[in-house]
């Protein structure tokens, strides 16, 4: 099979194989395997879901159910810099909606969308468990505390 048609790379497959024996039961490998897929692709394509289903011996529908249940598994590509703005109460009280409005205006996209060049995507998410730094966000895996309009501008200028 050529690389172009593989659902996941050889390296990702090796990671998944190792996960199959890491836990007392094979089934527990599912979430970590999906993370491995997402690490490679930036999202979890359907072909890769089917591939993981085959490895674990479960149906593709079962895997699709799990992928769609958890908000951190992306079912379509996100931007290179994926902005997740916390919208829940403590962040709302400290201005998360103003932060979102600023981002939508600067990026020219609505929440839930990706910029045409694929650089940025924007999403409201539920409580990130960092209310002491409200309004807070995550950009990819990084925590971004205490956002305001000026910090949004500075952040966008810095991220390529």
């Amino acid at each position: 099979m050529s690389t172009a048609t593989r659902a996941v790379s050889v390296e990702t497959e090796k990671k998944i194989d190792a996960l199959l024996t890491k836990y007392p039961r094979k089934s527990s490998a599912l979430l970590p395997a999906l993370y491995a897929v997402q690490e490679e692709h930036g999202w979890v394509p359907e072909e890769a879901q089917d591939f993981v289903a085959g490895k674990l011996g479960v149906s593709p529908a079962f895997v699709a159910g799990v992928v769609s249940f958890y908000t951190m598994f992306h079912r379509k590509p996100v931007g290179r810099h994926h902005f997740q703005i916390c919208r829940t109460l403590s962040c709302m009280l400290r201005g998360s909606h103003e932060v979102m409005a600023r981002l939508e205006q600067k990026l020219g996209i609505a929440r839930g969308a990706v910029t045409p060049d694929g650089r940025f995507s924007l999403q409201f998410v539920e409580c990130l468990g960092a209310c002491d730094t409200a309004p807070c966000a995550q950009v990819n895996d990084d925590d971004v505390p205490l956002l305001d309009a000026a910090k949004v501008d500075e952040l966008l200028a810095r991220l390529k």
Binding site: K22, Y23, L31, P32, Y70, T71
Partner: peptide
């Protein structure tokens, strides 16, 4: 001890 990561579900 094994670390297991959730994936976004309250």
């Amino acid at each position: 001890v094994l670390v297991y990561r959730g994936a976004g579900a309250y």
